[in-house]
Design a binder for these strands. Sequence first.
DNA 1: GGCAGTCAAGTACGC
DNA 2: GCGTACTTGACTGCC
Length: 319
Amino acid sequence: MRIGYPCINLSLTCRPSRTFRLASYSEERLCETLANNLACLEEIIYWNAVHDLLFLRITSDLVPFGSHPANQYPWDQEFAPDFARIGEQIQGYGLRISMHPGQYTLLNSPRSKVLAASLADLRYHARVLDLLGLDQTAKIQIHVGGLYGDKKAAMARFVQRVNNLEQTVRDRLVVENDERFYTLEDALSIHAQCGIPVLLDTFHHELNPDGRSLREALAAAAATWSQKDGLPMVDYSSPLPKGRTGSHAYSLNKAHFKRFLKESRPFDFDLMLEVKNKERSALLAAKIAASDPRFVSTSSLIRLALMESREKETPPNEE
DNA sequence: GGCAGTCAAGTACGC
DNA sequence: GCGTACTTGACTGCC
C-alpha cells in the first residue's frame, strides 16, 4: 500500500499546474510555463520520496492546453528529455503514478465534438505517461460520464468507445464509480464488457452505493486488475461533518481512516487521499498506516530492490 | 497589492 | 430556457 495525494503539494511554494488564459496564449508563454511546471513536478517527486508518500496523481494541467487545438507546439518533442529524466526519478524512487482527466472529458457523450475533445484529452494524458517512460501500471482514471436520458445506451456507448481506443491509451484506462450516476456495479459491468480495471472510490461508494459492503467492494474491484495493471488503486476521502454531498473534506478524519484501514484488510492497494489539505493529510495517513504491514515506505522499497538485485546476482541454491 | 470576475471545456437539475 | 452546482484554483483586469 502506497499512500498519496492529488496534484498539488501545499508545503512547497511552486505549483505544477500553472496555466494562463487562452487569450494570452503564445508559444513563449507555453514553454516558460511548462518548464516551470515540470521543475515543480520534479520537486514534488523528490519531496514525496523523502516523506514516504509513494503514490502521486499528476495534474492534468501540467501542459497548459495540452489537448487544446490552440496548442500546436511540439512540446512532447521539445521537452522529451525533461520528461524522461523525471520518469527515471519516479521509477528510481518507486513511485506509482495516476492521472485523472476532469469533468469535461466524456467518452460516452452523444455529441461528436465532445467525443473528439475527450479522445484528444485521453491521448494527451497517455502521451505524458509515455514520455515519462512509465509502464502500464501508471493509470488514467475516468468516470463513465453523463446519462443522456438513457443510462443503458450511455454505458453501451462508453464500452464501444473504449473498445475503439488505440491500445496505448486503452492499456492505461481505468473506470471509477461516481457519486451520482454510475455505481460500482455499473463500473464492474463495464469491466466485464471491455476489460478495463475498476478503480473503487470509497467515498463515492458510500454516497452512491450498490449494496456491497466495503470489503465486498474492494474484493470486486481488485478482481478487475491484472498483474500488468499493478496493484489496484483506491480513492479515499473522509466524509464531511455536515457538508455538501460529493465535495471532499478539508482534512483527514483520523478515526474514520483507522476504521477504513481495519475494515479494508486483507486487501492491498495503492491509496489516493482526496482531501483538500493534500500532503498534510497524506503525511498523517502514512503515519497512521506505518504500523500496517501493507504500508510501503521509501526505505523498504529500496531494500526490496536491493534484495531483488542480490537475488539476481546470487546463483540459486542447488537442490 | 488586493479584490472580484472570470476562465477551454459538459451535463443534470431545479425553477 | 436559464441559472447554478459540480470542484477548483488561480489568472487577469481594475482600482
